[in-house]
Design a protein around this nucleic acid. Sequence first.
DNA 1: TTCTTCATGTAATTAGTTACATGATTGA
DNA 2: TCAATCATGTAACTAATTACATGAAGAA
Lengths: 212, 212
Amino acid sequence: MSRALTTTTYGVLGLIAVRPYSTYELAKAMGLSVGRVWPRAESKLFEEPKKLVEHGYAKAREETIGRRPRTVYSITGAGRRALAAWLAEPGDGPVLEFEGLVKLMFAEHGNRTDALHTIARARAWAVEMNTASIAAGQRFAEGEGRHEDRRAITLLVGAFLTDFYALVARWADWATAEVENWPDDIASHRISPETTRAVLARATWSQSEGET
Amino acid sequence: MSRALTTTTYGVLGLIAVRPYSTYELAKAMGLSVGRVWPRAESKLFEEPKKLVEHGYAKAREETIGRRPRTVYSITGAGRRALAAWLAEPGDGPVLEFEGLVKLMFAEHGNRTDALHTIARARAWAVEMNTASIAAGQRFAEGEGRHEDRRAITLLVGAFLTDFYALVARWADWATAEVENWPDDIASHRISPETTRAVLARATWSQSEGET
DNA sequence: TTCTTCATGTAATTAGTTACATGATTGA
DNA sequence: TCAATCATGTAACTAATTACATGAAGAA
């Protein structure tokens, strides 16, 4: 027996719930939308619709473009019910992987310049992502009428990502200023208890709704 | 020949650069420190030090506690050089996986209550993480003298995570307010061009350093 | 006509997870 | 002395990545 479907599979199920997609279109569409919060390699996405067919959640239709075959998937009634059921289940919180921060954690075993580079790279990443995001947002806003029914939802997700990119950039600016004051031999650096407390105090945002 | 080591492997290399660790200690220590920005299953971590030994970056010493064997790993000179070289290479930017947001992207195929639950869960996650983070920070600040040499670095990472948790909570509050205004039939919801523009405007944080 | 890019995948490999197993230690 | 938890792993499985392959369409 097959095990429960993964988030990746539900991701493509959600896409074909909007309209039928060919495998290639699916891979591209994931990259632009779902992939922003659930990144997967393209080749992986070619397998997922097959699983959906196995479960009866999608139907495959074979077409040919010239002499090339292609497969177009569309959702079934059972697929819509499965999607709705999945939406009602609790979703996992964010999972963050940040190699740059791993390097920073071990900064004392390298030199200060390396650490500053690592931080600068994170900042550049944030600017790059944000630029792409703005461009996508612009196209989205200009496409008058198109996707109008999905606009509110898209903005919900876009706002999160935008805020995240801004956070990375702001943190990088602060971190750069901090590290610039470090000695070249990082391990010899000491900071005052007051500084420690001040940074820790950032964590005390009020945790009940409406007071943040 | 073996391929390049992974970030996970360098993570344990970084740990044993501070002091020797037994495998079990490594697994625990990863969970508490590196794991916050590079989460991996414990069992995975039991394999990594073996790879380090293969490469000559670590030495294994067999000990026994009672009749139970255990293995303690310590870093070699080659290991320190490899770590320093790795620190000098560019590090990847953050990678975010957020199942809750995937569900929100497809919210129109479920109902409004589900969407609100999903958002609420994200907020609860942020509060929970932040609470744990504060507790860890407190213990850290109180351990007078201990880890004093690593304090500045730990705070650098802690500040990032703290800001991230706060971001998730603030976003969730905003998103809750938005979704509460949606009709039960989400797909029928339309928002004004002004609202669209207002949300998109969040993305225009100034991207050059010092102006954020 | 040839080169490049788009479109459509498959194969091989690896990184990672879940589940299990079992000895030692501590506390009720 | 019994149960719980700490300590130390192994085995089986799966999800995901990297690398490759090839036909069609459009550009130069």
